[in-house]
Design a protein around this nucleic acid. Structure first.
Length: 214
DNA sequence: CCAGACGTTGTT
DNA sequence: GTCTGG
DNA sequence: CCAGACGTTGTT
DNA sequence: GTCTGG
């Protein structure tokens, strides 16, 4: 699963190779604690790639209202090509969600302990789909089963796309929607500050307090 | 035919 | 829009 | 995803 | 329990 994203990529600092030469949306701001319903920075297009902000939670074109979005923040890799909510986007509206990390929560009884996952110590891309609903552009993040590292916290994880597959994915071609290799990822526990989506900034990825009382 | 759903995850 | 259930 | 609200009426 | 806001 994937329900909170760290997207602090800052154009003032180092821009990853796959974003070189692309113009960032004027409204883009780096985020340490980006939640569903908020604008995600994503890459789309084939001949002409562009960076856009897409509201997280895919609303199919046929939806009567926005309510479906709360349960379409993720799409299962094994069914995404055929489910009514996603298949049109799967055919022709692919995107790559830019991320510096993503959070997962370990449930320990009543407490929810946040962990931050990173890939190769640099920004990466998640397989996504987007859709237009009235004037609104929305997106979803595809999930698959967890690799060993992810399974320590949860049984699902987002599909992290190998850079070699970026073009194929955006072009609408089939690519393997499989768990990313554990040995290229890192995970660490972070502060409970990230639990509340109103909190923003580097505190969200700080180490957790050592006592139970943070 | 029309009406109604269409999604994910976790928890029970 | 398209499929399923009735 | 998690946290927090979840109701009505009338009055300020 | 379920929905909304962030």
């Amino acid at each position: 699963m994937c329900g909170r994203i760290n997207q602090k990529t800052n154009l003032r600092l180092e821009v990853p190779d796959f974003l070189q030469g692309l113009e960032f949306p004027a409204e883009y701001v780096p985020r340490y604690n980006l939640a569903p319903s908020q604008p995600l920075l994503a890459l789309r297009g084939t001949d002409q790639r562009e960076l856009v902000l897409l509201r997280w939670g895919l609303i199919p074109a046929w939806a009567k209202d926005e309510k479906i979005a709360y349960s379409t923040i993720n799409a299962r890799a094994d069914t995404v090509a055929t489910k009514p909510a996603f298949r049109a986007a799967y055919k022709s509206r692919r995107c790559l969600v830019v991320a510096d990390g993503y959070y997962e929560w370990l449930r320990q009884g009543k407490s929810k302990l946040p962990y931050l996952y990173n890939v190769d110590d640099r920004p990466f891309c998640l397989a996504g789909l987007w859709e237009r609903w009235h004037e609104l552009e929305t997106c979803t993040v595809i999930t698959t089963e967890a690799n060993d590292l992810a399974a320590a916290v949860h049984d699902r994880m987002p599909v992290i796309v190998d850079p070699a597959d970026y073009s194929a994915w955006l072009a609408g071609e089939p690519i393997p929607l499989v768990p990313f290799p554990s040995d290229r990822m890192k995970v660490r526990p972070v502060s409970l500050v990230v639990n509340n989506a109103r909190n923003e900034g580097p505190q969200c990825e700080a180490p957790p307090a050592t006592t139970l009382f943070e």
